[in-house]
Write a protein that binds this DNA or RNA. Structure first.
Length: 863
RNA sequence: GGGCGCAUAGCUCAGUUGGUAGAGCGAUUCCCUUACAAGGAAUAGGUCACGGGUUCAAGUCCUGUUGCGCCCACCA
């Protein structure tokens, strides 16, 4: 194992350069060259220090492996890497793991499509199973749960290799030895252990309740996974019937739910309906008697002002059902179809035959026909665009069905917990700080606990069994749990403690909980997984709570929030000191990149064409939290900077007989050289302050602005002298200043452009630049009282070049005379550099100096 | 309906505690110059969204309006 060198001083420059500097430096091939060398040399390996204070730990977002990465990911992961590299150069032991979120529904869906299979829990395991040679997504092959899980593992491992290759090409300085995946046995054990502790403390519980249900994936979903979308529908004006036969009209977009109606509800202050409260009406077609009730959530100006409460059309129905203690009349089943048998509460069950077994959509059409025949449809349905809740990964509106599910307390039903979670948010720093509002808003608005069970296959199983009574009915109230030492377990494979496998699913025996945890229930524990909670106490103490949690801003309500919940419940503290939020990369029309829109930019192509350093540069120009449009022109700018770094390095290291090992600040004797280094020292301070505030963009801007000035003005100015045009002593001052500046510039750029800086560093230094010490102003500054020299010289150079450009002559055209006029201070600053100026201007005559008021001007007479 | 953010050059964005409007890209013109032509130099380009207010002074602070974006809620 290599030794941690970041806390040691900058490695000494090599003595003599040999053949280190190439004739024509190029960007091509640097990614492959250096990423493999970093891997082989363990450059980014985390070495455990003796104290927590020496560590900087990062809760890296584990990307969903079954999705594809786009440039948005590249940008936000780069943002994290910038900070990681800076902290490493500051001497911190950076704990920077990577994870793969391979667990869950997205993987299942990808496997189904990729192999043309579907999981059928009733099929037996086939040890010799091979996926279909020619997958037919229309007619997927049913395979066993275990075969299905094997395919999930197989495909994710392929995807993960591609992801790792991309991250290495991008130059993320993660320690790949600490890679985790959310489906691994270790993650499973962490998720199960945390769950068992939640259960023991009463924070996890099993409840039979109305549940948001995705009919496509046939599973429950959580509040945080909702997405509202426009959904076309129709208003139907429908007559209910009062005891005297007179009609009472309601408006609904979901007439098929008339079969589930439990009450009609109006606002208590609504004078139109006040006389009717407490009376009943009969539903059309089915003749079910339902009460007319008052509730403040009813809105008088919506529809007819009186709502049909059904079990369940939306979340308001659930609230009414609960608060008004209404009967449960659910007919929509888990596959989204209406149940086959006519419900027993219907006064007239015969018409139900028209609806039985149909999807909500088809049943709606059939119901409209029944209403029309019965004369209870007033007018024709009128089209409307309504909002409906969708599962964010689904494509049919969610239904609400009653089912037995696992929940974890998240403050939705407990104001004290909610307040505690808000306090955790307040303990943390937020970058940018206004993103905290989103967290606060979400926590304040959470309603209902966190539903974590999913009726799926590829996930962490609940470590729970239920005893069966003599009739074979499960005892839901007393789940059987394993000892923590047995984790991870699979209750469908392992028998419950105290039972034999033969007693599985037998009366008097036991049965396994069939569900798996939602992906978020595992990924909410990434700090615990990565930091080795209960697995590696030394590591955990060194890394938890973590320093930084980077993520995109869309994930505050899910991943960010859920980690705060789990850490609060288990550790009574926030999981990190700081949360950083990245923005999105938008397409040139400022639309969010989206697979279905076809506007996704694939990172491989961009990295290939512009180079990783260029893409990273562009990423670094996007400030924390700010969305940023994708623009290829910007990549070219980054590429040009990367090229410039190589060429400037080549130039500075290219003087004949140069010995970088001898460079020292004492050699820098010329005022203009000292002034440049002083300016550079100020840039170091700016960049450092910016990085301390996690404002990497400001660090880059300060560095880059001065680097271009350095190249365009200073290097041009001293070139002649550095080549020896004014003698050896003055050449040494210029060369030392150039060399010291280069050493600082390369380190300032190292977080942004790790490949070119490492390449240039390798020409004259030993060891990786990424383990070198972050520069300090004192390395170069504090030598002169002439801070304005470079500024005045730049102004003079602009004037000289301007004159030549205006005259349409080459920059090396000779000049007869240059007259400087301006304040005495400006003139004296210029005099300090006049030999250099004379050379760079190709002045064959002399300078003239005219002291006066106003700005410095230069009058240039061409020869 | 609630919250948050944004509005500065054709585009993307800076603009510190108020003190003469900045950069890059793009455009135009020019230059093969021994680090760099996949480069370099120079030039043009802005009623700082709009209305009030505070101030000697407002892009900046306060307030109102408009437009855009995001998050949440509602979705009879």
């Amino acid at each position: 194992m290599h030794s941690m060198t970041s806390a040691t001083p900058v490695p000494a420059p090599r003595s003599g350069l040999g053949s280190g500097v190439p004739e024509r430096p190029a960007l091509e091939g640097l990614e492959a060259k250096w990423s493999s060398r970093w891997r082989d040399q363990g450059t980014y390996d985390f070495v455990r220090p003796s104290s927590r204070a020496e560590v900087f730990s990062i809760d890296t977002p584990p990307p969903t492996v079954s999705g594809s990465l786009h440039v948005g990911h590249v940008f936000s992961y780069t943002h994290t890497d910038l900070v990681a590299r800076y902290q490493r150069m500051r001497g911190r032991h950076v704990f920077y793991p990577m994870g793969w979120d391979d667990n869950g529904l997205p993987t299942e869906r990808r496997v189904q499509n990729y192999y043309g299979v579907r999981c059928d829990a009733t099929v037996a395991y086939d040890p010799d199973f091979e996926p279909p040679a020619q997958p037919d997504p229309k007619r997927p092959l049913p395979i066993s749960r275990d075969n299905f899980i094997e395919l999930c593992l197989k495909l994710t491992s392929v995807d993960e290799r591609a992801f790792e290759a991309l991250w290495r090409q991008l130059g993320l300085s993660v320690d790949w030895r600490t890679l985790y995946s959310t489906i691994s046995p270790d993650s499973t054990a962490v998720a199960q252990r945390a769950f068992l502790r939640n259960l023991a403390r009463g924070e996890a519980y099993l409840a039979y309740a109305p549940t948001l249900w995705d009919v496509t994936f046939d599973t429950a979903v959580a509040q945080a996974e909702l997405q509202d979308r426009d959904y076309p529908g129709f208003y139907h004006r429908i007559a209910f019937h009062r005891p005297d036969g007179s009609p009472l009209y309601v408006e609904t977009t979901r007439p098929e739910l008339i079969v589930s109606v439990c009450a009609l509800i109006a606002h208590p202050a609504d004078e139109r309906y006040q006389p009717l409260f407490g009376t009943t009406v009969r539903s059309p077609v089915f003749g079910v008697e339902v009460p007319i009730l008052a509730h403040h959530k009813a809105e008088p100006d919506k529809g007819a002002g009186i709502a049909m409460c059904c079990t369940f059309g939306d979340l308001t129905d659930v609230q009414w059902w609960r608060e008004l203690d209404l009967p449960t009349r659910t007919v929509v089943t888990r596959n989204g179809r209406l149940q086959a048998e006519a419900p027993d509460w219907l006064a007239d069950p015969a018409p139900y035959a028209e609806l039985a077994g149909k999807t909500a959509f088809s049943a709606r059409q059939a119901m409209v026909e029944l209403l029309r025949q019965g004369g209870d449809l007033d007018g024709e349905p009128t089209p409307t665009m309504r909002k409906a809740n969708f599962y964010e990964k689904g494509d049919k509106p969610l239904e609400i069905v009653s089912s037995r599910q696992w929940y974890i307390s998240n403050g939705g039903r407990d104001d004290a917990l909610k307040a505690a979670l808000l306090a955790r948010g307040a303990e943390m720093a937020w970058v940018p700080d206004y993103m905290k509002h989103r967290f606060d808003d979400w926590v304040a608005g959470v309603s209902g606990d966190w539903l974590i069970s999913r009726q799926r296959f590829f996930g962490v199983p609940f470590p729970v069994w239920y005893g069966l009574d003599q009739q074979g009915e499960p005892d839901w109230a007393h789940p059987i749990t394993p000892d923590e030492s047995a984790l991870p377990i699979d209750p469908m494979r392992d028998p419950a403690p105290g039972f034999e496998e033969a007693q599985r699913d037998q009366p008097g025996g036991f049965t396994a909980d069939q569900d798996v945890m939602d992906t978020w229930a595992t990924s909410s524990l990434t700090p615990q997984i990565a930091c080795g909670w209960e697995r590696d106490p030394e590591l955990f103490d060194l890394t938890f709570p973590m320093d930084l949690a980077p993520q995109a801003h869309d994930i505050i309500r899910t991943w960010l929030f859920s980690r705060v919940v789990r850490s609060h419940l288990e550790h009574h503290q926030a999981p990190w000191a700081r949360a950083a939020l990245s923005g999105f990369v938008l397409d040139p029309e400022r639309k969010k990149m989206n697979k279905s829109q076809g506007n996704v930019v694939v990172p491989d192509d961009v990295l290939e064409r512009f180079g990783s350093d260029a893409v990273r540069w562009r990423a670094a120009m996007a400030r924390p939290g700010a969305d940023s449009p994708f623009d290829e022109g910007q990549m070219k700018v980054g590429r040009r900077l990367a090229t410039k770094i190589l060429n400037a390095s080549k130039f500075i290291l290219g003087f004949p007989g140069l010995d970088p090992a001898s460079w020292s600040l004492a050699q820098v004797t010329e005022p203009v050289d000292q002034a440049m280094l002083d300016d550079l020292g100020r840039v170091v301070d700016q960049a450092t302050a910016a990085f301390e505030a996690f404002e990497y963009t400001d660090a880059l801007e300060a560095t880059e602005r001065f680097f271009w000035t350095f190249c365009d003005d200073y290097v041009e100015l001293v070139k002649d002298r550095a080549y020896g045009g004014q003698g050896a002593a003055l050449a040494q001052s210029a060369q030392a200043a150039l060399g010291l500046a280069l050493g600082v510039f390369l380190r300032l750029f190292a977080p942004f452009c790790p490949f070119v800086t490492e390449e240039a560093w390798s020409w004259w230094r030993n060891g990786s630049i990424h383990l070198a010490q972050w520069p300090e102003a004192s390395e170069v500054a504090g030598r002169t009282g002439q801070p304005a020299v470079l500024e005045q010289v730049s102004a003079a150079l602009v004037a000289i070049r301007g004159a030549k450009t205006k005259a349409k002559v080459s920059m090396k055209a000779e000049v007869a005379e240059i007259v400087f006029s301006g304040p005495a201070a400006s003139l004296s600053a210029l005099r300090l550099a006049q030999a250099d100026l004379k050379a760079v201007a190709h002045l064959v005559g002399d300078f003239a100096w005219q002291e006066g008021a106003g700005e410095l001007t230069a009058t240039v007479a061409l020869a």
